[in-house]
Amino acid sequence: MSDPDAMSDPNLIAADDDDAAERRIRRCAAIWRWALAVGIILGWEILTRVKIIDPYYFSSPSTIVKTAYVAATQGTLFVDIGYTSASTIVGFIIGVVGGALIGLSTWWSSVYGRVSEPYLVTFNAIPKLALAPILIILFGIGFESKVALAVALTIVPAAMAAYGGVRSVDKDLETLLFSLGASRFQVFAKVVVPWAMPWIVSSLRVNIGLALAGAIVGEFIASQAGVGRMILYAGQVMDINLVWVGVVVLSILALVMYAAVMTAERYLLKGMLHGSQLGT
């Protein structure tokens, strides 16, 4: 009775408690995340120093940093990173946009959609990396062949995702637009594309990884630049430290691109997160 506010609104206090608990869990998880990362790096360093793990094969964090510094100052590490990033990003964008257009185009004719479905499924099942030699012969050993491989890997998943979105479009929303006197193109632009957007966006995270893999395999097979070529070269001259630099650089690259895709997702999905389920 001494605290009338607390009596009048018990829900508010419960919510405060929930918030505090949530914050505690989040802080705890963050601490553990960083501790684990530091632990792994430290453990790696120590175990290789005392020779429990063979430093010849597994290098060590300090050696990797030193090798990376040398590669960056005296070698072409930054050029390689730029090359790999550029072919990945260009391939990713062409693949995703092209795939999305293919998938979205199925809305215009249900016969065409049904005809193309088995072809998409089949092409999706082919290990596209097997096409790499052909693509390199077709596009040469330069930038284009890396982009082509990234496109080959990403275009079908994007098309499949968009096709799935198109198939699930709420017919009532189409009817609504037609009842307002909309043309077929207006229905497409104002209903079908936004409706399929969450499907397309959900394929982005997988696709950025596929694009990177495509670009690197292209560099493995024949290339004059790129992180993949650097790794291949380092392996051939038994410079295992430099291989590790390549692996670490690629991991960081993958993380950065993943984060960029997640930001793009939030932007593309603005306001449609509850789309299909809640729309009146």
Binding site: D172, L173, T175, L176, S179, K190, V191, P194, M197, G271, M272, H274, G275, S276, L278, G279, T280
Partner: peptide, 11 residues
């Protein structure tokens, strides 16, 4: 139409 139907991604 019966359901009212607003486009969920539009304000």
């Amino acid at each position: 139409l019966q359901k009212g139907l607003l486009l969920p991604w539009r304000t």
